Simulated assay, not measured.
Amino acid sequence: MSDKFLLERSPVKYLLEEMHGGNSLRMTTTLANEKDRERVYDTIFRMPWRCELLIDVGFFVCLDSFLSLLTIMPIRLLTSSWRLLKTRQLKSLSAADLSDFGCFLMLASGIILLQQTDISLIYHMIRGQGTIKLYVVYNVLEIFDKLCQNFGGDVLQTLFNTADGFANCSPENMRYWLWRFISDEALAAITLSTCIVAHNNALFALLVSNNFSEIKSNVFKRFNKDNIQSLVYFDSVERFHIASFLIFVLAQNILEAEGPWFENFLYNAFVVYICELMIDIIKHCFIAKFNEVKPIVYSEFLEDLCKQTLNIQPDNPKKTLTFVPLAPASVVIRVLSPVYAAHIPCGPMVWRVVWIFMLSVMTFVMLTSLKLIIGMGLRKHATWYIKRCQGRKLHSD
């Protein structure tokens, strides 16, 4: 029968049938339905900008928290210290005041720890290493940094809870809560020190790109909605860490670079940002595709983040962006201090103190202004976006 089929079918007839038989790939592909078509459009067009918008808003939330640590917290500490000196009673401090003192002590301990390290030596040691060795060390530090970030958030929550208990305790239990507050403070300081070890080697993020292994380790896994939300929040925090890494490199170039280096720095920073942007978009697009997650889910994540910006408590703690700015702040202050010191003119001690005071005031005013702009902008955006989401829900109902 097969011989008869081959005899009756000439090559010309076979070619004509193939030409007029429909799609040339019909034997190895299937026709897409409307659902498949929407999935393709979601992956290519709708998901990227929603994902990037969420990550960018998360980045500014982290930046706002970072600026609050450097601007709002010192003002609160001064007012609390003045009130404490007037009353001379530790009981007059509230839980928020005790939390501010705890954060200040951790920040100070981190800066003191970093003062004992030679940043320039570390910088040149990193530059002299081979690519393979840097790749291995970077992966170890990245895992270590993620663990420290997660544990550091838990430690700070414990510290704030203890501060609340100490502020509201009775005089009979004050000794117990004071001991617990000091213990939690020590634990937080130790955790911060381990975080700083990872941040101190931050230049690895610019020397070695680990992005494609990040895609490989994420896109083929099964994720639920909460895990995807935690992942995109972590990408926002990572974006902020990269910005702090760039400040580290900028400070080192200001102190040690020779010749025209600024254009090269801007180019490298732009390349790092574009690579990070593309990798995050590709990663989340395919995670959403393989887990059948609609782009509207990322809009829901953004709504949760806007509620967090307005201090609206979510029903699920996993829906909050957790960011501890103490370690990045310690690194930034440490690497920028020599830059400021290099621009203080030589002269009598009084004149140098005046210059230090003027530079400190100017920096504080600029950071406070930036904090006000970003904070008010985030609140206005959050209010507008939540109203928009509520309006859409009313129309859909």
Rank of each mutant, 00 (worst) to 15 (best):
S2K: 12
E18A: 06
G21F: 01
G22F: 05
L31Q: 14
K35C: 02
D36F: 04
R37L: 07
I44H: 14
I44C: 09
V57F: 15
F60Y: 15
S65Y: 00
L67W: 04
I72W: 10
M73P: 06
P74G: 05
R76A: 11
W82T: 11
W82Q: 10
K86W: 04
K91A: 14
L98Y: 09
D100G: 06
C103F: 02
F104E: 08
L105D: 09
M106Q: 13
L107G: 04
G110H: 09
I111V: 12
L113K: 14
T117P: 04
R127S: 11
K133D: 03
Y135K: 11
V136G: 05
Y138S: 05
E142Q: 13
Q149M: 11
F151Q: 11
F151A: 11
G152C: 01
L156C: 02
Q157V: 01
F160P: 02
N173G: 03
Y176W: 11
S183M: 02
E185Q: 10
A188S: 12
S193I: 00
T194N: 10
I196K: 15
N210F: 04
N210Q: 07
S213H: 02
N218S: 12
I228F: 09
Q229K: 12
F234M: 10
L246D: 14
L250N: 13
G259V: 00
W261T: 02
F262G: 00
L266A: 09
Y267Q: 13
V271R: 12
D280V: 00
D280M: 01
A288H: 11
Y298W: 06
D304Q: 05
D304Y: 05
K307M: 03
K307D: 05
I312W: 14
S330H: 01
V331F: 07
R334E: 00
A341L: 00
V353D: 09
V354C: 12
W355T: 02
I356M: 12
F357T: 11
M358K: 02
M358A: 07
F364D: 06
F364Q: 07
T368W: 07
L394N: 11
